[in-house]
Simulated scan of single mutants.
Amino acid sequence: MADPGRFDPPARRLPAGCRLRRAASGDAGRIAGLLRADDRREMEALDGRPALDVLEDWMRGGCHVLSVRGEATAIFGIVGCPGSSVAPGQRAATPWAAIVSTLGGDDLADMMWLSRFQVDSWQRRWPLLQTVCDTRNSFRRHWLDWLGFEHRGRVEGFGAAGLPFDLLVRLRVGTPALSANAP
């Protein structure tokens, strides 16, 4: 009988046709070429460069790819936030993901559920996950809400384009609540 307290990594129970792997040459180009228009605009507003360049920089920190039936469909990773912490010795991190716009139906549902498992896994290492979301990107905002991120404010002139971005955070259960002014 399986131990109910044991965590099996998502890769052990991926839906049929799905596979997790390290990123390979060409993955960034495929994903960037198939981004949703709102996701592309968000990346470019944040960094001031083409989405492909932004994605390639994000990938330098290490990342994984979800492939569906042999095609790269999502690239994701996480970056530690130096100087940002919840309490002494507890670090914060920023997760990121880029997903193709061509996913639909069951494949999209599978990817969304797998993203929840991945965020739960990251949350075991980092008590605070934080990210920003372009206020124009309502699909991503709803996805982050569904993943358990909470709105913590808005920065009116953020990123290279100086556009409004929402700050969202997700605290690990049992982590002391942040003050209204944090992080």
Rank of each mutant, 00 (worst) to 15 (best):
M111Y: 10
L46G: 09
R170I: 02
G159P: 08
A23V: 12
T135I: 13
A16E: 14
L52I: 14
T73L: 06
G80P: 11
L163D: 06
S179C: 03
C133F: 00
R152H: 10
A28Q: 15
M112E: 12
G29T: 11
P4D: 03
A87M: 12
G83N: 02
R172M: 00
V119P: 12
S115I: 01
A109P: 06
G174F: 00
R13M: 13
A23P: 13
G5P: 04
F117G: 02
G159D: 01
L66T: 04
E156W: 03
D166C: 11
S25V: 14
E150K: 07
D134Q: 05
G33K: 11
E44D: 04
D47G: 06
D53A: 13
Q130A: 09
W113T: 08
I31H: 12
N137E: 04
A2P: 15
G80W: 04
Q123R: 05
C18S: 09
D110N: 15
V54H: 05
L178N: 01
R49Y: 00
D134V: 00
G174S: 02
A45S: 00
V169D: 10
A92N: 03
R141G: 09
E71H: 11
A74N: 11
L144T: 00
N181H: 11
M112D: 11
A37N: 08
